[in-house]
Design a protein around this nucleic acid. Structure first.
Lengths: 248, 248
DNA sequence: GCTTATCTGCTTGTCTGACAACTTGGCGCA
DNA sequence: TGCGCCAAGTTGTCAGACAAGCAGATAAGC
């Protein structure tokens, strides 16, 4: 994308229509298995051409909301809306879902991943982790940005579980929280010791995994994620069991 | 969808083209930020009409693979392919990703969720869990299908974490493994004691969560997932640390 | 000579019309 | 009653036209 693409462009008609139809499903106006209005009806109702309708439906298909049958119609798909998991961007974050929630999900996932990695890692896995740690150490000494190395380290741990699905999930999560790693490893992060702290936590994770100590690996990962959240100023407040919780 | 929709329909041209272009990205033929061939070029190269090209690109947009700019072209999006996490259906399961991998992901995720739920649950959460357990007990006594209740129980635990993102992820996972819960609660599952065993495990999870005992909740959830995998005949073989692993 | 405005060619976005392929229901015939 | 045919309706594809946006080249003005 060109560098000057800063201003948002107006939504295409197909995008708008796609969202409207999606809202119909979410609001229960259309239930699973229901047939959508025909293309012709949608053209008339929304005042757009058939091409726009077809593109909107193509989008809904890609998103798993509808299935089409030639000659028959378009139908709300089974499991509409839950065939993909996505984390909305911060500016479009769903109500109640902030970076804190994302880090909490990371914490419970990554502590389990580290545990499994400790049980499964190979010599090759450890070699890669060491290499990444070495590169991060150099970045630390030279005060260079190393958020990509940080991400690669976490992905390598997930790969060490030997479960491709886990690896893919970590890749997905890394992409979602990419921006949050940058401040730890920028000039200010180095200055404030954030990068050094993260590096120590990574070393602790590595040592536990290398030692094949699953529970130590879990604790190290949980500690790292907790500390990472604190570095970002995210405070996770656990409430006493039994009290009613206010959900923002 | 109609009941007689059993035979697979041939892929639409737009689907085929969408996949081809997606493969270009995955194989590195197109990198992030690269401009795709123009619509006209794609028409000529693939021998299809412009409408097919546009629908294929609409699909790719919905999937987060490309971004388009009117007058300029279509470009491979930042983070192409990792803006959504999906689990392919069993018949289209990615290489190495089977139900075993899915259950392993569930195990590490749900044990963490149960732990957090034990720390966070409210009286209202517990009341809902008890209600669901009561319904499952009735289903057990009457040998009825209760996979939906089973799913709702797990979702209620995720909701008890108070983290909407965690709740959404559990909803997503529930939809992906929907079919695997059915055999536990069908006539044969009842006959073989699978449903009764699952129910006991649910009760253990509930008790630990109700007691606010996070580590007991973690162990109960891990045990339940392990047992559920075994009920399905999925064997998770942990290899000795240090050995090279064969990844299927 | 430098800056601004205009023009041109190209590209995506939308609309329209036509035909192909599929689906279902109704009707006629054996 | 079952099978075949037909008509009407719906999605899939193709083709053409025009609108809107974009970037680069050129011309005009200072």
């Amino acid at each position: 994308m060109p560098e000057c693409a800063h201003l948002p462009r107006p939504l295409r008609l197909a995008d708008t229509l796609s969202r409207s139809l999606q809202d119909w499903v979410k609001q229960g106006r259309l239930a699973e298995g229901d047939r959508l209005p025909t293309e012709k009806q949608l053209c008339e109702r929304f005042g757009v051409s058939r091409a726009v309708v077809r593109e909107a439906i193509a989008r809904l298909q890609a998103d798993g909301y509808v299935e089409t049958r030639q000659g028959l119609g378009a139908f709300v798909a089974a499991g509409a809306g839950v065939s993909r998991f996505r984390i909305d961007r911060p500016d479009g974050m769903a109500a109640g879902e902030g970076l804190r929630e994302v880090f909490e999900l990371r914490q419970l996932m990554e502590s389990g991943i580290a545990e499994l990695a400790a049980a499964r890692r190979t010599d090759g896995d450890l070699s890669l982790l060491r290499d990444l740690l070495t590169q991060m150490e150099i970045a630390l000494a030279e005060r260079q940005q190393a958020s990509e190395l940080d991400d690669a380290f976490h992905r390598a741990i997930a790969a060490a579980t030997g479960n491709p699905l886990v690896a893919r999930f970590m890749e997905f999560m890394g992409a979602q929280i990419h921006g949050s790693r940058v401040p730890t490893w920028d000039a200010q992060g180095h200055q404030r010791g954030l990068a050094a702290a993260a590096h120590e936590e990574h070393l602790a994770m590595y040592r536990a995994i290398a030692a094949g100590d699953a529970s130590a690996a879990r604790r190290a990962a949980a500690g790292h994620l907790q500390a990472a959240a604190e570095r970002l100023g995210l405070v996770s407040v656990d409430r006493e069991p039994g009290t009613d919780r206010r959900r923002a």
